[in-house]
Design a protein around this nucleic acid. Sequence first.
DNA 1: CGCAACACGTGAAAC
DNA 2: TGTTTCACGTGTTGC
Lengths: 216, 216
Amino acid sequence: MENLSDEYTLDWETNTFLQAEELQRYLDEAIPTHNDSSSQDGTQSSLMANKSIASERNRRKKLNERLYALRSVVPNITKMHKESIVKDAIDYIQKLHEEERKIQAEISDLESAGSSSKSTISSPPPKRSSPIEVLELRVSSMGEKTVVVSLTCSKRSNTMVKLCEMFESLNLEIISENITAFSDRVLKTVFVQADEKEKDLLKIKIETAIAALNAA
Amino acid sequence: MENLSDEYTLDWETNTFLQAEELQRYLDEAIPTHNDSSSQDGTQSSLMANKSIASERNRRKKLNERLYALRSVVPNITKMHKESIVKDAIDYIQKLHEEERKIQAEISDLESAGSSSKSTISSPPPKRSSPIEVLELRVSSMGEKTVVVSLTCSKRSNTMVKLCEMFESLNLEIISENITAFSDRVLKTVFVQADEKEKDLLKIKIETAIAALNAA
DNA sequence: CGCAACACGTGAAAC
DNA sequence: TGTTTCACGTGTTGC
């Protein structure tokens, strides 16, 4: 039977080629397996066979290297089988496609910047958008000394960061705040310690801050 | 020449699966290859073997379908061999990466346009950094394809912003995320689309990102 | 004739 | 335990 006791498998799970040296040695050395000069009627059987076998090995090796490289350019993932590597690559490409589409729209909207400091709410479809697209802004009072701000935006690349910065710049006395991102929406809720009469003023402040941030 | 009588090979060159019917017939029919009733000692040899062989067939078929799908999402080229499909996909992803990088730079340049004259609202350069103090970091899996990150920090001046930026920089596939600040704590919860096996790796990534951010 | 690309069945190894 | 993934050598087909 075949001896081949040694282990040469390259390892997709542990990320790197395991024992590359050994694999290489195996590959280089093992090609002329049959150097038994049986010299039978065989014309060049072993010679031809060895070439074919080497070609096939090389082909497989190449393809595997390519798959390995493919995985390395796809972020997020670090393991998995051949099939999943390709699958994840597909998903990733599609994700990039969509992202590019969004960014493209965002940029074209940015260039045709119209400062919309007037509208209180209202921004209906995903058509009209600026860096921060406010879908809804509600400022209400909860008791005498607490004001609740509820803000809904469409989710863009840096929306959460900007929202945080924006509220931070207002220097409010924040009791508690919360941001949730899901689907294509970002929802921010802030509990502010302030007199209920400041409610409307606070709303204007927020609108102004957003407008300023978008016009920057 | 173009006789192609019993052709079953699926054709990567001409783009579509050639003679899919015939291939299918071949696949379906040929499984119980050995129904030679030699009635040899065979206990379950053929039975077990046929399972293995069918599994292998299915695995290969799956992988080929995936490769085919991969090629379909990569624009530009259409045809070529397996290896080139993967290679083109890699090139394309890298091209998209670079494009994204450019766009990102362009956008940040656009955003940091004006300013400098007389900013009433926006804080000038509040570049003071207060490190992120991690109180608890829990990364767990929820099902096979979802990983939940739960991170608790102490609340400092820019903690929320930094947390958002940090997660954004990781380029994860985020299903939904949430930040809540209350009292002197900030709690961030993120649902990430990732294999459960990536759990530990993801935790390390987050820890590293936070450490790097604090060292700035 | 060879060369390149492929599908196939098989045994080994990992989970 | 068995299921799944893999590399391998081989036969076949089109250039």
